[in-house]
Design a binder for these strands. Sequence first.
DNA 1: GTCTATACACCGATAGAC
DNA 2: GTCTATCGGTGTATAGAC
Lengths: 208, 208
Amino acid sequence: MLIVLDKPRRDRAAERREATSAEIVDAAWEAAREQGLAAFTLKEVAERVGMRAPSLYGHFASKTAIIDAMFAQAWREYRVVADETFSAVPSAPREALGAVATTYFEFAVADLVRHQLMDTAAVPGFRPSDEAYAPSVAVYEQLVGLLHRLGITDPDERDLYTALIGALVEQQLANDPGGERWRRLLPRAVDMYADHVGLPGPSLQGEP
Amino acid sequence: MLIVLDKPRRDRAAERREATSAEIVDAAWEAAREQGLAAFTLKEVAERVGMRAPSLYGHFASKTAIIDAMFAQAWREYRVVADETFSAVPSAPREALGAVATTYFEFAVADLVRHQLMDTAAVPGFRPSDEAYAPSVAVYEQLVGLLHRLGITDPDERDLYTALIGALVEQQLANDPGGERWRRLLPRAVDMYADHVGLPGPSLQGEP
DNA sequence: GTCTATACACCGATAGAC
DNA sequence: GTCTATCGGTGTATAGAC
């Protein structure tokens, strides 16, 4: 069935409204980065967009709704980044594993509070809505597909992989934010894992 | 020099005072487990020990001081557990690594909020006092000593080990609390790491 | 759509009586 | 040591004027 939409004329009012909502979400990210994900206040958000706190309720039904929008935005962004990597994944197994790991690592490490919101239970009581949650499922399925193509079908080995890469992210953020201490270990960790599951090919590292 | 302490007679008042402080700390753990580490309130703590909130200030100078006492207690407890493991560490390298990893894993997984307080930055702005922090340094030095005896002296390899075990803890707590999904991977992960650093000996797992 | 004013609840911490 | 009373502050959210 073809659906013809009448008058695709721009709705300037709606556009402006959406732009304001986006501004609010951006301001919420800033506030969360300064005060913490659970601790930032609507007053801080409002000030950044030149409003008073109650005015935010014209755009979001609650503080939780703002956090949900942040969650959705973060995963949408990562989905774009991950799609790019998965669409041009190297054919060599170890390089493939390394590319996917690097993409995730860099995205997570680039923004602490974003990582906390996406990957940890940092906001007490927060549960993302189904729409906000959907992109994370899609990305995980891409990973499962890649591992399958590499012959890694055991769910336990899958868990070990995600744990290993997640570990490096956690340690990097917790113990050396902005540094290189754990990032440098990424090829080594991928090699260790590749050896473990019996992937062929030469080491990702130069000669040790 | 020998220091002779006069009159080691029991000071019943001091004992009672200390017991009350311990009660308060216990109540704070309970409150933190229910409301979250950063979110629990002094009122909740006070109610559990049959007091009013202001009375807590007769025992602790601030809410932060209570959290500091919790931090110190947790690491003291772990120090006892770790001392036991390290004092009777198996002579076989892989078993040694596995025993130490298991001790840490089980202690961390047994209590989410305790783990959050000990090993993550879950309380915004909280910095443990030096006395409270000391036991964690002691435990880490024990680990470094063991790895040295096993021939693992590269700091990068040390980091990889702590990241790997820490990762399993995080995943277990975040994705399967109370379950076995990541605990079961512990021997596999230790083996993977042992292979990686070239430790001798048979696999920790039965025949795969 | 944004404002002011305010409701309502709760927080950590202090003062001072007992 | 523990209490009551209270201070000074914060927070989310709503009501109603403009």
